[in-house]
Amino acid sequence: MSKTVTVGISDLNVVKAPDTLVTYALGSCVGICMYDPVTKVAGLSHIMLPSSSLTGSDPKQTMRFANTAIPMLLKKMESAGAQRPRIKAKIAGGAQMFAATGNSAISNIGQRNVAAVKQALAALRIPIIADDTGKNYGRTLYLTAEDGVMRIKSVNRGEWTY
């Protein structure tokens, strides 16, 4: 029996085949899928903001920021048996939901999140093999641990996979 594990906002989780991870309705937030095809360990993180200079140990805070959540996800995957050199990433989200709010801090948050995610993955030498970021619509994201496929669902544009 395979199960589907939900990852909330500012949350992350790791599963093994045959399970699936899902995070709903990414707006300007970014979903980071990481996968080791040999051990079939899959990890998904849903970050809200680019970076934190905070060094606190509150796990809720750690999972909120790209620069702290991604290393935490990697650690969790390694504890589940994944090997770092085999891990590859697929990312989605970082949309601009509202155009022209007259507040640039709102309009470019998605873009800043994507940039921070790319930077955090580069620092860990994890290659990005699929990138479905930006634009102006919400995305629900599934990651199946059996094959590492990232499936994206939108309300107005249907579904597609990477």
């Binding site: 309705a25 990414l26 707006g27 300007s28 509202f98 919400g138 629900t140 309300v155």
Partner: peptide
């Protein structure tokens, strides 16, 4: 400013902005 989409994605905008 208007947006027609998933509730979660819409509400995340103020949630992100005021997260701090």
């Amino acid at each position: 400013s208007i947006c027609m989409d998933m509730a979660g994605a819409i509400v995340s905008v103020p949630a992100v902005y005021y997260a701090d």
